[in-house]
């Protein structure tokens, strides 16, 4: 199929984009890497009045370490994130997740901001940003605001970003000494959206988890922080019993949506398996470190 008719404006600058967003309201649609938007256009599933192309805005990309915060411009391509020494050193969770994001050609063009803005519940980056306690910086003609990841993801493709706002940057706390991260995903084929997935950040003391964030994706309507499973683990010596308690508690954290890939029960089962594996791996990594 061919895309329906639409208008197209190339935003020359951030302020230009914000002005367009403000003027067009619901009629405007931002295109960044386009790796998710273009298929829906080609299939005529979305029929925007005007596409606002932000690809040529000069100061929307790039990765910098700013104190203990890694700042990633929304327009930064996945490939840049994947190859970034800053990300490798300070955001190892994201570095570990990156090979799971689609395929080479898609990573060359797709952007991290686009992934976070779209908020596909099976996508890797929203889960990572939430696990790492990142903050989204959005701007509008009225100014800018920061939204914590916990408050950002509202549901299926729904976020706290208003129609007239542009996601401009992700601010993600850099790994602290001793932080352990683990990323795991189950997809039937390489690069597919996850059937189940887990982004895990932990602080481990000896054989026990002192701090833990478990974010699940691919099963709920948004990346989901598990609190019950975490409570079952924190402060306990890691053991098979502890693992069992955590996976049992996960039943209260998650209520997976069935889809073509499988039933709710299967997704819950897989998330449980991943939980055990990820926490085992975290302990191993802590020991190795």
């Amino acid at each position: 199929m061919k895309a329906p008719k639409f208008n197209y404006v190339k935003a020359e600058s951030r302020s230009h984009a914000l002005q367009l967003l403000d003027e067009l309201g619901e009629d405007g649609r931002i295109i960044a890497g386009g790796q998710s938007l273009m298929p829906t256009l080609n299939m005529r599933l979305s029929q925007p009045d005007t596409l606002i192309d932000i690809n040529k805005i000069p100061d929307l990309g790039g990765i910098t370490l700013d104190g203990n915060i890694v700042r990633i411009g929304a327009l930064t391509r996945h490939v840049e994130v994947a190859n970034s020494p800053v990300v490798a050193e300070h955001l190892p969770l994201i570095a570990e997740a990156m090979p799971h994001v689609a395929h080479h050609a898609v990573r060359n063009r797709g952007t991290i901001g686009g992934s976070v803005a779209l908020a596909d519940p099976a996508a890797e980056m929203p889960a990572c940003v939430l696990a790492l306690g990142g903050t989204m910086v959005v701007e509008s003609v009225n100014g800018s605001r920061e939204i914590a990841a916990e408050d950002y993801f509202h549901g299926l493709y729904e976020t706290a970003r208003e129609t007239n706002e542009l996601l401009v940057e992700l601010r993600i706390p850099a790994k602290k000494t001793g932080d352990i991260s683990v990323f795991m995903e189950l997809a039937q084929r390489h690069g597919d959206y996850a059937m189940a997935g887990l982004a895990c950040v932990a602080r481990i003391n000896g054989n026990a988890f002192e701090g833990l964030r478990l974010v699940y994706f691919g099963s709920e309507d948004k990346p989901t922080l598990a609190s019950k499973a975490v409570s079952a683990v924190i402060g306990q010596a890691w053991s098979e019993e502890c693992k069992e308690a955590a996976t049992k508690a996960l039943e209260d954290d998650l209520d997976p949506m069935a889809n073509l890939q499988g039933s709710s029960a299967m997704k819950l089962h897989l998330q449980k398996v991943l939980t055990g594996r990820a926490l085992d791996t975290a302990i191993e990594r802590a020991e190795a470190a």
């Binding site: 189950l186 039937q188 059937m195 890939q261 499988g262 039933s263 029960a265 299967m266 089962h269 897989l270």
Partner: peptide, 13 residues
């Protein structure tokens, strides 16, 4: 033979 088919065969789901 999806993962779910196999898990069902094993009685895990």
């Amino acid at each position: 033979m999806s993962p779910e088919t196999i898990l069902k065969a094993l009685g895990k789901v």
